[in-house]
Design a protein around this nucleic acid. Sequence first.
DNA 1: CGTGGCATTGAGACTTTTCAAAGGCTGTGG
DNA 2: CCACAGCCTTTGAAAAGTCTCAATGCCACG
Lengths: 243, 243
Amino acid sequence: MIKVERAGGAVSTSHEHEEQPHHNILHGLDFSVQRAVLAAAGHRRMKRNAILFHEGDPADAIYVLKTGAATIRKSLVTPEQQVIGFLYPGDILGTAYAQRYAYSVRMLSNAEVLRFNFATFEDLCGNYPEFGHWLLQAACSELAAAQDHMLLLGRKTARERVASFLVRLEERLSRHDAGPAVWMPMRRGEIAEHLGVALETVSRIMTEFARRGLIRTQGRHVVYILDRQELTALAEGAGTFYE
Amino acid sequence: MIKVERAGGAVSTSHEHEEQPHHNILHGLDFSVQRAVLAAAGHRRMKRNAILFHEGDPADAIYVLKTGAATIRKSLVTPEQQVIGFLYPGDILGTAYAQRYAYSVRMLSNAEVLRFNFATFEDLCGNYPEFGHWLLQAACSELAAAQDHMLLLGRKTARERVASFLVRLEERLSRHDAGPAVWMPMRRGEIAEHLGVALETVSRIMTEFARRGLIRTQGRHVVYILDRQELTALAEGAGTFYE
DNA sequence: CGTGGCATTGAGACTTTTCAAAGGCTGTGG
DNA sequence: CCACAGCCTTTGAAAAGTCTCAATGCCACG
């Protein structure tokens, strides 16, 4: 079962990850449209930990993540926060239905973003109906993801949540870079806030998974999935008893 | 504080609620566009407990709820289910980004829906760009609601969840019918599945709220909010200790 | 007016959280 | 380039909240 062992080759330091192969960000659009869209976009480089915008800021643009990773979070009245999701290349952010952004975005690594202020954005929608369609599609897909995550938050146990998270993350990343290592730039605390459990619970369960031989960690930000099948089973509620 | 007491006048039996004033469903669109949209739509009457469609059914239409109420839910591999939300007049359902519906819809009361099959839908988008915009808006707003609900599911205690639910429900219904009574056609179990807690917990907490004088129940499906301020405070985490 | 499904209530069990302390990366400054 | 400081992570034990199981009570519909 353990067949992924070429560590060091695929991953050496976390810095290396900042230059990822940015595959097709505007996946699904005609090349001519893609060219037009890219030409209209503003390019922007962001440093790790930089804030793209805050929850409540007046919304004036839509962004597409080109390289790197980011966290989107919302705050409660209490100091508590909920991490809505983690973004990887190709993800859209800032789809504001109102005048203000509904969440904050922080970069998890150095990153590049494409920026469309609302004027250019409206132009693009007018000139290329395809683009509007593409965006509606993206919004619907984001909606579906949000609803999936509700299922996790509402019905799963802590163990199921962590297992789901690892499996989904690996699945998602395997589209970008095919290495056996899963790059996990976020902190344990952010994972915890995403999964709706305590930070310590995430830590404990990941340790447990490592002890059971399902994963292997390498530093804080790299994980190898050793037994995806078992992990998937756990994610779906097969893990009532173990050991 | 207790100033809402004209029971019986506003609410007599649950049947009465099936005929609600259906205010402007296509809110925000030009009248001419509204006329065209309504003309293109198919009208359909549904009985209580009828299923509009199932999760996984091939998607062939988009619906708008005209009168009544409905539940949308998703299933896990296990028998567990999550209630994604409750729908009231004006809500859109069936925004499928893929070929299949992502959730099931069950009517909570006799209801009327507008139906747009994909062909008419595409036509409408083509002829009235406004309509496409309106839909994108609706999807974004649904997304925002989903993200809000994640916050509830991820970070709130059971008491905060029930309080939030009651306050939001009242706020939402007050737009349609201004009575002091909140119509709650869903079962306790569905509320529980929506809030990510056990059925019994919902029951216990609602009893507690009634005992504390924050609400008053009338049968299973009607609730009066007696102290919205306190309830709002509880919803936001002020209720760490009481009594 | 009866019956079956819903809702309420209670007690015990279990998962998860909280509080606390020790251990280990990371990246910054010398 | 190395060492140190600070933050992040791991680990432990006790406490709290919520769930499960089970029985009773109530409402709504036929």
